[in-house]
């Protein structure tokens, strides 16, 4: 099972395929998942990455795979160490607020 829902956390494990993007998007849009745990994630299809980018769940754990971690860092705001330039950080945070607003409606 490459993906499961643990309370409000989407746990991505192994290699997450394009098929998984559908469920992940649904969980995040409906608010059933608000966080994502990628500790055991070994690979992501671009469609799954898009879900993380567009719906911006809180990333509670980065992938153990450093190469994949770099790609996630490039696509998403880094969770703990803030990148030096401020603008991308702001831009990246904005969608999350939007999601919350959308989920509330």
């Amino acid at each position: 099972m490459p993906m499961r829902l643990d309370r409000a956390c989407a746990v991505l494990e192994g290699h997450c395929t394009v098929e998984e993007a559908h469920d992940l998007a649904e969980w995040l849009v409906t608010g059933r998942a608000r966080e994502a745990n990628l500790a055991a994630c070994a690979g992501l299809h671009a469609a799954v990455l898009q879900c993380l980018m567009a719906l911006a769940p809180q990333i509670v754990a980065r992938p153990a795979d450093p190469a994949l971690g770099l790609w996630l860092d490039a696509a998403l705001p880094a969770p703990v160490p803030l990148p030096p330039e401020a603008p991308p950080q702001k831009a990246a945070r904005a969608p999350r607020r939007r999601r919350k607003a959308a989920a509330a409606t």
Binding site: L24, A25, L28, C51, A54, A75
Partner: peptide, 18 residues
């Protein structure tokens, strides 16, 4: 490398992962 959305993401309910 750098990766970003080509256009702004749509509002969550309209988001199509595919």
């Amino acid at each position: 490398f750098a990766i970003a959305p080509r256009e702004d993401w749509p509002a969550a309910p309209l988001f199509d992962p595919y």
